[in-house]
Amino acid sequence: MTASLSLIIVAAALVGCGIYLILERSLSRVLVGVLMLGNGVNVLFLLSSGPAGRAPIVGRADPADMSDPLPQALVLTAIVIALGTTAFVLAMAYRSWQLTGHDDVQDDVEDRAIRRRALSDESSEGYELSGDEGTDEQEIPEEGRSRR
C-alpha cells in the first residue's frame, strides 16, 4: 500500500501536540488536546483508505477510480463521538470552575498521600546525614526532626 507522507506528518504532529496538551493541568487545555488527538486519529483513518480517488458516489465515477468509502464513514462516526465528548468535557470544566474557581485537574487521594510521604522522607534524619546542602530545604517543624 502506498501512503501519503504529508498525511503521516500531519497525523503525527496532531497526535503529538494532543498528547502534550492532555498532560497539562488545566481541563480546557486537556480538551484542546483531546480534540487534536481525535483529529490526528481521523487523518490516520484517511491514510488507511489508501490513495485518494474520486468521490465514492454510485454512478458518478468508475468504481475502480473511487476512494474507499468505509474509512470516511468511520471518520464521520468518530467525529460525532468526539463532538459528544467535547460537550461533556466542557460541561465538566465549567462545573469545576463553578465549584472551585479553576478547572485544574486535582490530585487524587493517593497522590496526595504519596507526596506527603515523599516530603517527610526528605526531612528524615537519613537524608540530613547524607545530604550536605541542606540549606535550601523547606522549613521543618522541630518536632518533626526529633521524631526520626
Binding site: I22, V30, V34, V89, M92, V105, D108
Partner: peptide, 17 residues
C-alpha cells in the same frame, strides 16, 4: 464526583483514541 469524573473521562478518551 467532578474530580473523580475528570480522571475517568480523560483516561477513557485516551483509551478510545
Amino acid at each position: 464526583r467532578i474530580r473523580a469524573g475528570t480522571i475517568y473521562v480523560v483516561v477513557n478518551v485516551v483509551s478510545s483514541a
